[in-house]
Nucleic acid binder design. Structure first.
Length: 1084
RNA sequence: GGGCAAUUAGCUCAGUUGGUUAGAGCGCUACAUUGACAUUGUAGAGGUCAGAAGUUCGAAUCUUCUAUUGCCCACCA
């Protein structure tokens, strides 16, 4: 053991410990001892926006996830925690544009697309470095080798692929829809990007024209220039006769609009609001748009993207701003005397969350993901969603609802499930295009100058397109980019090597060669499939229809060609003949019986028999491996993300399917004749099989504020693209607030920057402050004082360790088996039993996300039991080095997920056996191997009660702290207490005398354990004692009355469980004994 | 308007399926100082569990209502 300083100074340890962890490679799950046999445990770090620095909210997320990861790593899991960053298209571009304007007074249009993107990249790079620095500071045991970014190459490939699949599945469509338009940002905003503002407005009630039969109301009369209908409540007597009629009106005066107003009835209209009739402006209101769609009303756009009135508004209005147009319309209404009422009202209007400009709803061609259209559900070979059959027709809404309804995804706290369903049920199609430059550009091209009718079609493609395939003219890519959640929705699987190339190996059906059991590798010989064989393949082809096959390759032999032809016809795809997957070359054995061949070279079923040599010039297994692997290598490069059918023969399939599995020479299973199996190969090279190993992930941990924006979208993307849930559990933490419960914001100046407080109090203290006191889904108040409190605790643990380690010349690892039960004192058994108990509590709590409970239980044990009692007692009993070390070792492990640094620092100075021996990868204490001692726990509680009582007496009667008090005790626990006499005497600073009666003239206190007396100090008088005893007597008497009443109640005796009754009886007995002792004392 | 949550000691919060004389930390009061730790120890004060009604042998815990606070969703023409 090296010298430990008196106080723990985190700055001296944290950075170097983190660096050593990282260098050791233990953050990478494949480097963990016995990694291959460990069960995977995965958390994807919610990628923070590339825009800024991390705040305490991020620290909470890091602390929680790191605690989970460390706990599971120590529990023998193959723990992967994968970091990354989100490009956050809108937020990032906005930030850079703002800076640009502030510093250089230029806009993005001055720079141009290319240059702006370059600037953003620089900005993002800088921010990412800062963020990863902050994550390291928090002690996050992230696998940095797998770090990802939502806008990098692999993620872009995945985005295009999913877009294309959705496009082909008719889930992505382009539509003229009313969207939220911010005329300042010149961009569409999703509902999630809206804020609201309360403003005063005038609600005008008026008629379109004097002879118009219905009065309507509006705060924006200018939009009425685009009205095409009036909606009323069905059956409203006032208007019933008019429903279905179309009325022509001139609106807005000379140069205004000629409106064709159709009267419709709809349940969405509120009878009692305003006039009970609603002027419908389909182009500039979400609600009206929906109404118009239901009733087939036309749509007239009268406000342009620039926020000015269009020609459709009429020549008198074209070019005016909205405000000007409103003035003009109102003036006209006044002049025509059409206004019936004007009232000032308060209304909430949607605004752009970022620039606070009022939203102008307007129709625009946008890309949407339909949540209603059905698609054929994909099959997962890893972790298929239960309850949705592969290939079944289902909508995204259905799949999103299903996986949560069936608890395949559990949300903690559960109440958010309700919120989730409510949201799903009201979900509208997802507008995914954004009028931005930064982000994943929409992979759709249009002919720049359409010449033929076909040219007008939008073409979706994974590869870039430069030429229109119909007219040969220039093709232009859609200028818009995708909503950032489109790519972050795929975070759980694009980080694991997806898109995979799926290869479906189909073995040819039964052929004449099989029936005759002879060998054939000569493609010029014509051996057909048998009838049985054809039937086998037909059945297989049906199944392949569910697999979204993109291409078919086949060996040149006739039996494989025939097999491929059947599949080709079923799927409507051409067949490519591929030499590299032909049958094993048979050499001199061409046309001979298999038996003859095997008589010479042995069982072909064991590739070892013919791995490197084969008789008669026949091909070796190794040679087949090489050519098939070469083919697959090429295939996954040219067909990334595709599903490929490879029709081949037994041996080549056998040899081929070990491709990409390092160290595997052949696949242990392979398909029967005429059937198939699926193999998936990723593109990450060294991480082959990541998706298989780590997906679905175990926990998604994030704030409840992005449950819809992100959590729901990940569920959408994963169920769609993979047919899997993205995670099994969702843990939602609350928002971090300041000590007054306010949100942390820059303008309030109450932001707690983790980088400010970490140097002051240490990372461990910050983590404790964030983990203890948090309950799922509830907000957490943090203050510097709270962090300072936990800093004190880290120091306490440090000093506990210092004391324990000073007891032993050489620190060493102690197992429970090393401790001799025979030699244990009551106190030893008590603490060991408590350690076992707390180990159980902590383990169970961490398994159920009860972070606060685990932390509190551990803190109470560490401070109130171990430090305050056991260590003090150990100083008296002595000879406890072994047990102390054992307790410390387990304690450090239990604390490690919460306080990684101080625990590792202590471990390193005391127990590390070498450079790579870290507490971080030590084995979690096994509570099942730790015996409990319930009797010792009870006995020691008596000891504690007596000591506390004596101390209280001392304080009560102001006895000098240095003075040793001669105590007399009358008790039925004499043997227990006598056994612990030295400890009691030292901790209470007393000498103990057991007696049957209290000595005369002494002061006493009565507790459950008996009567304790001390000699009367000069200063005290009798009334003090009597007063206290009288009060206690009163107290106990009342308690007895309550208990007695309860036990006299026959209903209680009849209905309460026996154990409860027994417990109450025990209490009553003890209370009566105590009362007797008090009365005895008072009577004396 | 619809929904969700919270309300327990001066402050921040625990309190697991109803069974404790209702707990912790901070703060407060008094005492203690060379032996692991003053970033400490010891003892103590402090609560009608927001209010009302109900269910039950038994309610901080379950039900209903009320009040206050916070959040989410929808928004009105």
């Amino acid at each position: 053991m090296s010298e430990m300083p008196k106080a723990y100074e985190p700055q001296q340890f944290e950075d170097s410990i983190y660096a050593r962890w990282e260098e050791s490679g233990a953050f990478i799950p494949e480097n963990l001892p016995d990694f291959a046999t460990r069960k995977p445990y995965t958390i994807m770090l919610p990628p923070p926006n590339a825009t800024g620095t991390l705040h305490v909210g991020h620290s909470t997320m890091l602390a929680v996830q790191d605690a989970l990861i460390r706990f599971n790593r120590m529990n023998g899991k193959r723990a992967l925690w994968l970091p990354g960053t989100d490009h956050a298209a809108l937020a990032t571009q906005n930030k850079v544009e703002k800076d640009l304007f502030k510093n250089e007074k230029i806009t993005r249009h001055d720079l141009g697309r290319e240059e702006l993107l370059k600037r953003i990249d620089v900005f993002v790079e800088k921010n990412r470095d800062r963020m990863t620095f902050q994550m390291r500071k928090m002690g996050s045991s992230l696998d940095w080798s797998r770090e990802a970014f939502t806008l990098d190459e692999p993620r872009s490939r995945a985005v295009r692929l999913v877009f294309k699949q959705m496009f082909d599945d008719k889930l992505i469509y382009r539509g003229n829809r009313v969207i939220n338009w911010c005329s300042r940002c010149a961009s569409t905003l999703s509902d999630d990007e809206l804020g609201t503002k309360t403003r005063k407005a005038v609600l005008y009630s008026f008629k379109y024209a004097k002879d118009f039969p219905i009065t309507i109301a509006s705060t924006q009369p200018e939009t009425k220039l685009g009205d095409t209908g009036v909606a009323v409540y069905p059956g409203d007597a006032r208007y019933e006769a008019l429903v279905g009629k179309t009325i022509d009106v001139d609106f807005g005066g000379q140069g205004g609009s000629k409106l064709k107003i159709q009267i419709i009835a709809d349940h969405g209209v509120e009878k009692d609001f305003g006039t009970g009739a609603l002027g419908v402006t389909p182009a500039h209101s979400m609600v009206d748009y929906a109404l118009a769609m239901n009733h087939n009303l036309p749509l007239v756009q009268i406000i342009g993207e620039d926020g000015l009135m269009t020609a459709a508004a009429g020549s008198a209005y074209e070019g005016l701003t909205i405000a000007e147009a409103r003035e003009k319309v109102v003036a006209w209404l006044r002049a025509e005397n059409l206004i019936e009422k004007e009232e000032e009202i308060e209304q909430n209007v949607p605004i752009c969350e970022r620039c606070e400009t009022e939203i102008t709803p307007l129709p625009k061609l946008q890309w949407f993901v339909s949540v209603e259209n059905k698609f054929a559900f994909r099959e997962s070979t890893r972790a298929p969603v239960a309850g949705i059959a592969a290939g079944s027709q289902i909508s995204l809404k259905d799949s999103m609802r299903h996986v949560v309804e069936t608890k395949q995804i559990k949300i903690v706290p559960e109440r958010f499930e309700k919120t989730y369903f409510h949201w799903i049920n009201n979900l509208r199609d997802w507008c995914i295009s954004r009028q931005l430059w930064y982000g994943h550009r929409i992979p759709v091209w249009y002919c720049a100058a359409p010449k033929t009718e076909k040219c007008a079609e939008a073409v979706c493609s994974i590869e870039d397109i430069s030429v229109c395939q119909h007219c040969g003219g220039v093709a232009e890519q859609d200028p818009d980019v995708l909503d950032t959640w489109f790519s972050s929705g795929m975070w759980t699987f694009t980080t694991l090597g997806w898109p995979y190339t799926r290869v479906i190996f189909v073995r040819h059906g039964e052929a004449e060669t099989n029936v005759g059991d002879f060998l054939n590798s000569d493609a010029t010989k014509e051996y057909h499939l048998t009838e049985t064989g054809r039937a086998q393949v037909v059945a297989t082809a049906e199944k392949l229809k569910l697999q979204h096959v993109d291409a078919i390759f086949a060996s040149p032999l006739l039996r494989t060609q025939e097999t491929a032809k059947i599949i080709s016809d079923a799927l409507g795809l051409p067949v490519t003949t591929e030499e590299c997957i032909r049958e094993a070359g048979m050499g001199e054995f061409e046309g001979k019986l298999t038996a003859e061949f095997e008589a010479i070279m042995g069982d072909r079923g064991n590739p070892a028999n013919w791995m490197h040599s084969s008789p008669g010039g026949a091909e070796t297994f190794q040679a087949i491996r090489e050519r098939t692997h070469g083919f697959l290598d090429e295939l996954i490069k040219t067909h990334t993300g595709k599903t490929i059918v490879v029709v081949s023969h037994g041996d080549p399939i056998w040899a081929a399917a070990s491709f990409g599995k390092s160290g595997v020479l052949w696949d242990s299973e392979y398909p029967q004749r005429g059937s198939f199996y699926v193999r998936e190969f990723d593109t990450t090279g060294s991480q082959v099989g990541d998706l298989n190993t780590y997906h679905p992930t175990d926990v998604l941990e994030t704030g409840y504020d992005i449950i819809f924006q992100w959590v729901a979208r990940m569920i959408l993307m994963s169920t769609y693209a993979l047919g899997e849930v993205p995670f099994k559990n969702v843990y939602l933490h609350g928002m971090v607030r300041d000590e007054q419960g306010r949100k942390m914001s820059k303008s309030l100046g109450n932001v707690l920057d983790p980088l400010d407080v970490i140097p002051k109090y240490g990372t461990d203290a910050v983590r404790l402050a964030l983990l203890i006191g948090q309950t799922p889904g509830n907000d957490l108040k943090v203050s510097e004082e709270k962090i300072a409190g936990f800093r004190n605790f880290t120091n306490k643990l440090w000093n506990i360790s210092r004391f324990i380690l000073s007891q032993d010349a050489a620190s060493h690892l102690v197992l429970r088996a090393d401790i001799d039960d025979e030699l244990l004192t009551t106190m030893d058994k008590w603490i060991l039993s408590r350690l076992a108990g707390v180990t159980k509590t902590v383990t169970e709590s961490l398994q159920t996300f009860a972070f606060s409970r685990a932390g509190e239980a551990l803190r109470d044990f560490t401070w109130n039991e171990l430090a305050d009692w056991y260590l003090e007692g150990a100083k008296v009993e002595g000879e406890k080095a072994e047990i102390l070390q054992y307790i410390l070792q387990n304690l450090l492990k239990l604390w490690h997920p919460y306080m990684p640094f101080v625990t590792e620092a202590i471990w390193q100075s005391a127990y590390a056996s070498g450079e790579k021996d870290f507490l971080m990868i030590a084995k979690w204490p096994d509570e099942t191997s730790m015996p409990l001692y319930p009797e010792a726990e009870k006995d020691f509680a008596h000891v504690q009660n007596v000591i506390v009582a004596i101390r209280a007496l001392r304080t009560e009667y102001k006895i000098d702290a240095k003075e040793i008090v001669p105590v007399t005790i009358i008790t039925k626990y004499k043997s227990t207490l006598a056994q612990m006499q030295p400890v009691i005497e030292r901790l209470a600073r007393a000498t103990l005398l057991f007696a049957d009666a209290a000595p005369a003239g002494q002061l006493a206190t009565v507790i459950e354990e008996g009567t304790i007396t001390i000699p009367k100090p000069e200063a005290a008088n009798n009334s003090d004692e009597r007063g206290a005893l009288e009060a206690e007597k009163e107290n106990v008497a009342q308690y007895i009355a309550t208990l007695a009443a309860k036990l006299a109640n026959e209903d209680f005796l009849a209905r309460a469980p026996a154990a409860v009754v027994e417990k109450e009886q025990g209490k009553l007995r003890e209370a009566r004994e105590k009362l007797a002792a008090i009365e005895d004392r008072l009577g004396a």
